[in-house]
Nucleic acid binder design. Structure first.
Lengths: 196, 196
DNA sequence: GTCTATATCCTGATAGAC
DNA sequence: GTCTATCAGGATATAGAC
């Protein structure tokens, strides 16, 4: 009944704030424990090991991102804006509390050669979520026949926006460029559609 | 005068083959030494420390990539194909001897929070090389006024292609999608040019 | 569920001989 | 320039009490 979050949630918060900004391997368990103000044994009781903690933090983060994306989709006025809503969603999500260096999921994928099962599953869920929703949102814009292709392009562009953060680009700049790139692709498909 | 490469080159080869596929942090110095068949002291005599070795391997790799890209540009027939030559260059480069998991430079950037000076310099050179050459190649295709913008789009798209490798995509698939994405962007700029 | 204290291993890097 | 042998520190994870 006190205001203090549980040790479990403090651990997840600390893991997110440290491991997803500094890198998982570069973040010793000790530092997570110190920040969470939690004893080692408590971490292993809850999550089994370090990877279990990271996997759970990643799952939670994926859910939060999904929610932020859906909010931005709801706020959009046209089908086209809904399809492009990932880009404003990214900047608004990143300006919120949690700021990974680029993308938590891709970051973990990049430094984990052979991920455990739960970790691999969460990582593929990220790609799956993006692909599925892009496809769904693309149908009213370019038609069902081209929805798969447009989804593939958007996934690549969005991944490129995230990668640009590693190249030192600002989220706003990368996101704006990506949105414009996506616009060209959508226009290209739309015009070939009206022409056909 | 024997056929055996020098200890220095064996170290660079081993570092490239191990650190850029398994990750730098996940690759202990011991394993590099073992693969290179070299004693620890030799590594530190040549490169100072682990980061020095990685930085040098990255520089060498960047040069090789540049050469491969230039070859592909020379082989292209039209201005447009020269601008799009990065994509076939990527697949041909990756099918060669050295195969990083996605991109050696971005991979190092992803797991290095605070890179040392030589490492940071090499990383920014990668982005700089891409940006400068894209701009140069874009001029005859879309004109000098739009060359900067097109270069920014191509950098993002190319970064996206590399990132797709982390999502499990094949190089051929990612490269083909990226080339198509770039085509839409170029066509968009070219048509607005002829319209203006 | 949580803490204190510790076990165990492995890492990057160095000393000193040749 | 290269080797053998080793140091000192820090990593993950566990034991056992409360």
């Amino acid at each position: 009944m006190n205001g203090q979050p549980s040790a479990r949630n403090r651990l997840l918060d600390a893991a997110e704030e440290l491991a997803f900004t500094q890198g998982v391997a570069a973040t010793p368990v000790d530092r997570i424990l110190q920040r969470a103000n939690v004893a080692p044994a408590t971490l292993y009781a809850h999550f089994g090991n370090k990877e279990g903690l990271i996997a759970e933090a990643l799952r939670r983060r994926l859910q939060n991102w999904d929610a932020a994306w859906l909010r931005e989709i709801d706020a959009a006025a046209t089908d086209r804006d809904r399809l492009l809503a990932v880009f404003p969603a990214l900047t608004s999500y990143r300006s919120g509390a949690s700021a990974a260096r680029w993308c938590a999921a891709l970051g973990v994928a990049a430094e984990t050669v052979d991920p455990g099962q739960q970790l691999a599953e969460t990582l593929s869920q990220d790609t799956q979520l993006l692909t599925d929703r892009f496809r769904e949102l693309a149908v009213p814009v370019v038609g069902a026949d081209d929805a798969d292709a447009v989804a593939a392009h958007l996934l690549l562009i969005f991944t490129g926006v995230l990668g640009m953060l590693l190249r030192g680009s600002s989220p706003e700049e990368a996101s704006a460029t990506g949105r414009a790139t996506a616009g060209f692709v959508i226009d290209g498909f739309a015009s070939s559609r009206s022409a056909g």
